[in-house]
Design a protein around this nucleic acid. Structure first.
Lengths: 244, 244
DNA sequence: GCCGATTTGTCCGTATGTATC
DNA sequence: CGATACATACGGACAAATCGG
């Protein structure tokens, strides 16, 4: 739980924007006004605002002010945002999810696995195959590779609950950074079977591959998530350099 | 051209990382060392480093240092990054691209268009349909909607070159923010025809929808880009809150 | 068009806290 | 324990863009 002042201000402003206390296209109070309001330095206010810019909530305009450009949207489908587990995503999307473990083995990275995942040859790994359900529909087929050295004691039981919860709360591994690549791939028979798809309808999947790093800068996870295309949605906000 | 000091330092460090002057997993010089080296304040150094973190180039570790986690990758296919035009992307990926204009009309947003694009009903728009080729292969079918008020004088001729170049250099519109959504959609007959696809192979497309804002916080562009799945690749870096 | 007030952008110096070694 | 390194926060100065009179 971050209790930094800039983070509290950031979250307070974010809430006010989401609750439309600031209207769309309206200017937020000036930085100096917010300094008075929150009793802090201007730097701290600016840091909170920079985070809102990165989220695509506001737009700063030199000489004019900070404009609210947040539009509440009907997110019909399952939306992927920053770094979060399936559980957290399910909660944020107000859905009930559960996870079935299809396979749980230990293995050593050979040349082929190394090339695919980015782990060095010889790394001791857990390989886990899981199916994520949302509202009783199988949506995501997940292939996880975890570095045993960083994630000792992982079990199929834990994998059926939340691996991230185990990592953060029991092992105190902190997830910091995640590099993701999104592509579209042909559906395999395995995908078809587990995701309950008809290849005549869709014959492709949305595939998200990610490498995740812990607070020591060690890559400890490689995951390939294969998503049902009709429930996949990825959101992003790009900002031209200069503001952050 | 940003000539801010923090931006120069950011780009210099980025270059050194890309050229592997700092090795993978190596620690960068400490902030205080960089303060000496670049003759600036610690805040300025920290700002440059924060940008590198956001790019997924480095990882900061309190009490330890800043670790280089950049891995040069073989980007076999066309990669999408931040905000950039097709032309810029083509150059970055070292490919030759050209653009064919399929349709160029002016229209007024009705209820349906408004709902799809986010423009208010009654907005005067340019609607442009374009096909982007890379190495003589049609890769992207683009549907653009531009707000006439912000982008006056747009022509089919300009659209066949670079609309963004016209906007930035002639109209001096500065693109600041872009909200994007990625989904996978069924291929239509139009897609199939123009993108030269065989629906028996792939029957889906990667679809990127984006709303783009100018420096006044006005949404002036809505674009839907329909990508050939076999050449589509989107990269992203997610960071847990706290660093930025 | 100019001037002054307002607002955001950049940069600096300093102090203190916290994590690592 | 002390030294080192990053994290947070403050306050101040000046630049650049905008707006109203």
């Amino acid at each position: 739980m971050p209790k930094a002042k800039y983070d509290q201000i950031y979250r307070d402003l974010k809430r006010k924007i989401e609750e439309e206390i600031f209207a769309y296209q309206e200017l937020l109070p000036s930085e100096n006004t917010l300094v008075e309001e929150y009793q802090c330095s201007r730097n701290t206010i600016r840091r909170a605002i920079a985070s809102l810019v990165r989220d695509g909530y506001v737009q700063t305009m030199q000489g004019k002010g900070v404009r609210n450009i947040f539009q509440p949207l009907e997110q019909a489908s399952f939306t992927i945002g920053g770094i979060e587990s399936f559980r957290e995503s399910a909660q944020r999307n107000h859905k009930k999810g559960y996870t079935k473990v299809l396979c749980f083995v230990e293995l050593t990275a050979d040349e082929k696995i190394s090339h695919r995942t980015g782990f060095p040859v010889g790394s001791e790994l857990y390989y886990i195959q899981r199916l994520h359900y949302l509202d009783d529909k199988p949506l995501i087929l997940n292939h996880n590779y975890f570095l045993k050295e960083v994630t000792p004691g992982l079990t199929a039981e834990i994998a059926s609950q939340s691996i991230y919860e185990y990592l953060e709360h029991t092992l105190h591994v902190t997830i910091v950074n995640s590099k993701r690549t999104m592509t579209v791939e042909k559906m395999t028979e395995i995908d078809e079977k587990y995701l309950d798809m008809d290849a005549l309808e869709y014959n492709c999947l949305a595939v998200v591959s990610s490498q995740t790093f812990d607070s020591n800068g060690i890559m400890f996870e490689y995951t390939q998530s294969r998503h049902r295309p009709d429930y996949f949605r990825f959101q992003d906000n790009a900002v031209r350099r200069g503001t952050i």
